[in-house]
Design a protein around this nucleic acid. Structure first.
Length: 401
RNA sequence: GGUGAGAUAGUCAAGUGGCCAACGACGGCGGACUGUAAAUCCGCUCCCUACGGGUUCAGAGGUUCGACUCCUCUUCUCACCA
């Protein structure tokens, strides 16, 4: 009984909304009492296999479910990708070749199994059953819903009212996503809050097709990016990529604000709620320094995506560079063949976008050569080796021949 | 299809003939303080070996000694009407 309560708490952790929690509770109870497993579905887009931490929020939740007896239906929407989820922006998507999809799927696996247990995960492609549906199957799918209800979806509603075009195929998208749940007989589906309409469609269609169950739906919030305000996204450049190098990953996590750290703990850490509570009260009563708590999170994360050694190295490296202001161990090396003007050198080493900026940096005292701050904008570097530094984070080694 | 409004640096947004490389805000970068946190303070933020020069205000022409500012055309965006 206590186990059940704890499991429920972990499952609800960080979620934005859960529909039909009673059913989730029943599934968990059946698992604890009789060892009965159940299925949790989550859909992913085959076009974007390079994940950032925003995506891993869902994966983390799936991992929690696995802990409590779920088999994950990791669905790659290779068919639905041809339509594109109706956002209003994307017009027509180019279709991916079977080969590309296979490659993307492979790279998904590499990244995803750092979080999920492969033994409790099925990777499925929805083209398999949707192609088999045929024209008549598709037709009968469309009879389960009507236009008025379809227009309830927020973005359809807005676009319809503002007179922006909505293609019929876009109406099909939620239906197909819902049909996936029919075919897979999913017990639970999880997705982002923006997916609510589509997720509920799964419930509707499971009822319409009388498969004898209606999936519960769990929605996760959108993860804030490093700035703590806007959603994590590549285009805003406030993201941590799953494939980021250990040192970058470590530094990025450590650079988030203290408030955001708890959010990241909640959504990204594999630590239990009880452990996190302990950390929180430790910080509150002063027995733990917030920085060390943040370091712990950074370590955990780097370890998950790389290795324990990498995490330790990242930490050591970080301390060396920032606490003791020494030079990082591996820095990019450049070389040139003749005496070079310092501003030009900074541009050539990708440390400044223009000589104008390089001059400004020098004027502001941001540039160091071999740990020494310089102020002469006209400085010429004659032959030798130099460690160049701009600000706190940018380093390069330059060899002048 | 008709009418009206608009397009300015990464974003928002001033500027309606010279004082404009262009107010301000946000973002970004650097410095101080720190825990590469937050908050705060200060500086910088088109390019160029630079007390000077070059190229910018949707695009192309024109008027003028001089245009981001005026005129013409083009492209695009928005609002209202149909």
């Amino acid at each position: 009984m206590k186990m059940l309560q704890e499991a429920l708490r972990e499952i609800q952790r960080g979620s934005a909304e859960i529909i039909d929690i009673e059913r989730v509770e029943k599934l968990l109870k059946a698992y604890f009492d009789e060892g009965k497993t159940y299925t949790v579905k989550a859909g992913f887009d085959p076009t974007a296999p390079d994940l950032h931490f925003g995506h891993t929020v869902l994966l983390q939740k799936l991992a929690t479910f696995q802990k409590y007896g779920a088999t994950i239906q990791f669905l790659i929407g290779d068919f639905t990708a041809q339509i594109g989820d109706p956002t209003g922006k994307s017009v027509t998507r180019k279709t991916l070749s079977a080969l590309q999809i296979q490659e993307n799927a492979k790279s998904y696996k590499e990244q995803v199994f750092k979080i999920l247990d492969p033994n409790m995960t099925e990777i499925v492609f929805n083209s398999e059953w949707i192609n088999a549906l045929g024209a008549s199957g598709m037709l009968s799918l469309t009879t389960t819903y009507n236009v008025a209800r379809m227009l309830e979806r927020d973005d359809f509603d807005k676009r319809y009212k503002s007179g922006t075009s909505i293609s019929i195929s876009e109406f099909i998208y939620p239906l197909l996503q819902g049909y996936d749940s029919v075919h897979l007989k999913s017990d639970i589906e999880i997705g982002g809050t923006d997916q609510k309409f589509n997720l509920l469609m799964g419930r509707h269609l499971q009822r319409a097709y009388e498969i004898g169950k209606e999936q519960s739906v769990l929605m996760m919030p959108i993860l804030e990016g490093l700035d703590g305000v806007q959603k994590m996204s590549k285009s805003l450049n406030n993201y941590i990529g799953v494939a980021d190098a250990p040192n970058d990953m470590f530094g990025k996590v450590l650079s988030i604000s203290d408030a955001l750290m708890w959010r990241y703990y909640e959504l990204l850490s594999a630590k239990s709620l009880n452990e996190i509570e302990a950390l929180k009260s430790g910080v509150a009563n002063g027995s733990l320094h917030p920085k060390s708590v943040k370091e712990e999170l950074s370590m955990e994360i780097v370890e998950r995506f790389h290795s324990k050694e990498a995490a330790q190295n990242a930490k050591d490296e970080f301390e060396r560079v920032h606490s003791n202001s020494q030079i990082p161990t591996d820095i990019e090396e450049f070389s040139c063949n003749e005496e070079i003007w310092i501003a030009k050198a900074l541009v050539d080493c990708n440390m400044a976008p223009s000589t104008s900026q390089a001059r400004r940096d020098i004027k502001q005292g941001a540039v160091k050569i071999n740990q020494e701050k310089i102020s002469d904008e006209q400085l010429q570097l004659s032959s030798g080796e130099y460690i160049l530094q701009v600000g706190k984070r940018k380093f390069a080694k330059l060899k002048v021949n």
